[in-house]
Structures are given as C-alpha cells and as structure tokens.
C-alpha cells in the first residue's frame, strides 16, 4: 500500500546509509546527510538502522498515508503536522489511514528524516536504495520525489509500541507520551562550531591560511547542496603553487580550489578530486554540518585524530544507548 506524494517540497529524496563498495568504480556513496538522525528515525519505528527514509530539505513534502503507518520524524525541525495538527518529533507516531503529513516553517536545522515502519518497497540498485540524482539511479525512479508519486511500502513487522496499540482506532494520529531526551541528539545551534582534523595537504598551506581556517568565520553560501557546501569568508592559499595528483576524497573533506574559497564535500561528493585538502571534518560532526542552513555562519575547531576517533566511538555508544532505551520503552507497558 503506497505513500502518496501530494507536494514534493524543496528536495525530498529516498536515502539509506549509502551505496558503499563502488567508489572505486566512480560511483558516489550518497545516503542520508545526517546519518545519526536517519538511524534514530529507523530505531524509533523498529526498523534496521540502514533502512531507507525520506530526507526532506528545508521545505518538507506533503504526503498521504493510504494505510495506517507507524512513523518517526527526526533531524531538523521543519514543523511536522498530521492533518494540520502539530505532531511530536523523536518519538514513534501512529498515523491513521488517509491521514496527511505536512510541514510548516523550518524552525531549526535543514534536513528532516521520515522513517516508515517496514520501509519502502523499491528495488535496491548496487545494494542500496539511496537516490543518486546525477546518474538517475536508486531511490524512487532515480530522482527526487514529485507530486503524484506513489511509493510502495513493505508490510511492516509488528513494531507498534504497546501504548499506541491501545489507541489504534484513532482517526488522525496518536503518539507516545515519551520522546527521546534532547541531550541524546543534536539540536541545531545558531553558529555551530565544526570540529576537524588536518587534511593531507594542510602543511602546504600558507601560515595565514593555517590560522584563518581555525579563527575566521565562514558562511555556508546559497551554492551549497548535497554534493558540497561552498564557503565564503577568508580566502585560503598554498604557500607556493603545487601540482597535485588526483586521489580519493570523502564526506567532510575541506578542499580549496585555486580561487581560495573552501568547499566541504558532502554526501553526494565525487569519489576523487585534485584540489588541496586543508582539513577534514570529523565524522561525529557531519550530522551537525548536515543541519546547517545555507546562509548561516560556521567556525572550525582543530582536534587531533585521536580525539576525532574517540568522539566517533562515543557517538556509536550513544546510539547503542538510544537503541536500548527505545527497545525498553516500546516493549513494556507501564
């Protein structure tokens, strides 16, 4: 039974954790920009963390559930509503057949994730359901969602929390009385500080550039998307010209083209590049970066590789904690 798209929003795509194993073939990873919000949305509806969700950007879509559905919305707060009534984020929500999910103004953040229990019954392309826009593959027909799309859903396993089961006859929606505590997830800040380690070509940059990257403010310009964030602020330069040989790049690589404005590579980045890489955003801060709206100001903070990996591990431990907490909440009636 499908999910009907009534309005597509600004850019709504189907994404999972990404298409790994094919970068050596020039195939980009894609996948959710805010991987943590994506994983939590799936955890809340009892799906595997790598199941696909809908990633909506700034202006959310309007969609109709043709059958009852257990859903969860996480990530940036784009003011989700069901049948015109505000619904809670970061918790399981049970939407009745015929109910309409829509979004109002973006309050905080940039990208929101809609997980539906059971997931989308769409084919995997190269072992992933992620939409690869430029090559037109994966996701729903290889493109962003459009008005009139009918996205088929899998028959979900019974993961409906006990407290919602008691109210299944509700005509609009019901939601759990609990939600994840805000300290368990990232809440967007006005001017976020993004932590980064040195990039492979850090030492080739001028002394001024090596100071500016950590001390100056950078604006995420309007020319920013799932491929990369183009920054403006201090212009950065090498201490002397260098011919670089193209090599692999990754999500969070901060590269600097000749004109000096840095670009942060995001989820849809190309697999290889030849620009000098001044820094690399730590994996634990990529979700934070994914939630920065174009036009906003960010700063970078230097950390060591060891700190970055400790933060990575802490983030995983935090997700384990969330998993355990949600499992306990949904499997026991209080």
């Amino acid at each position: 039974m499908p999910l009907e798209i009534l309005k597509p929003g600004l850019l709504s795509t189907i994404q999972d954790l990404g298409r790994y194993g094919y970068q050596k073939d020039g195939i980009i990873v894609s996948g959710a920009m805010d991987v943590v919000a994506h994983r939590i949305a799936n955890i809340l509806v009892g799906s595997p963390e790598d199941a696909a969700t809908i990633e909506a950007t700034l202006i959310g879509p309007t969609l109709r559930f043709t059958t009852p559905a257990l859903i969860a919305i996480t990530g940036g707060n784009l003011s989700p509503e069901i049948n015109g009534e505000a619904m809670g984020m970061w918790r399981p929500v049970y939407a009745a057949a015929g109910s309409i999910l829509s979004f109002q103004k973006p309050v905080t953040g940039c990208r929101t994730y809609v997980a539906v229990a059971g997931g989308f019954a769409i084919p995997e392309v190269l072992k992933s359901q992620s939409t690869y826009l430029r090559a037109g593959l994966g996701g729903y027909q290889g493109r962003a969602l459009q008005t009139g799309d009918l996205i088929p859903l899998n028959e979900p396993a019974d993961t409906i929390p006990e407290e919602l089961k008691l109210q299944q006859n509700h005509t609009s929606f019901t939601q759990t009385t609990w939600a994840l505590a805000p300290q368990l997830y990232y809440t967007s800040e006005e001017q976020p500080t993004i932590r980064a380690v040195h990039g492979p070509e850090y030492d080739l940059f001028s002394e001024t550039s090596k100071t500016d990257i950590w001390e100056k403010e950078f604006q995420v310009t309007m020319q920013s998307d799932r491929m990369g964030y183009r920054l403006s602020g201090a212009t950065l330069a090498l201490s002397e010209p260098a011919e670089l040989i193209s090599s692999a790049v990754t999500f969070g690589t901060i590269q600097v083209p000749a004109e000096g404005n840095p670009i942060i590579l995001m989820a849809d980045h190309q697999t290889t590049g030849g620009y000098p890489r001044i820094a690399q955003v730590i994996t634990a801060d990529l979700p934070k970066l994914a939630q920065v709206q174009p036009g906003k100001i960010i700063r970078f903070q230097e950390v060591t590789l060891e700190q970055a990996q400790q933060l990575y591990i802490q983030q995983e431990l935090n997700i384990q904690k969330i998993k355990w907490a949600v499992h306990n909440k949904t499997h026991h009636t209080s």
Partner: peptide, 15 residues
C-alpha cells in the same frame, strides 16, 4: 571499501 587512484590506495574503515 578502498579506492585506487594514480599513486594512492585510500582505505576506508569503520573506527
């Protein structure tokens, strides 16, 4: 995964 290039092999791992 890993990506061979002109002079490099980049090895991606899950810390």
């Amino acid at each position: 995964e890993f990506v061979p290039a002109f002079t490099t092999v980049t090895v991606y791992y899950n810390p």
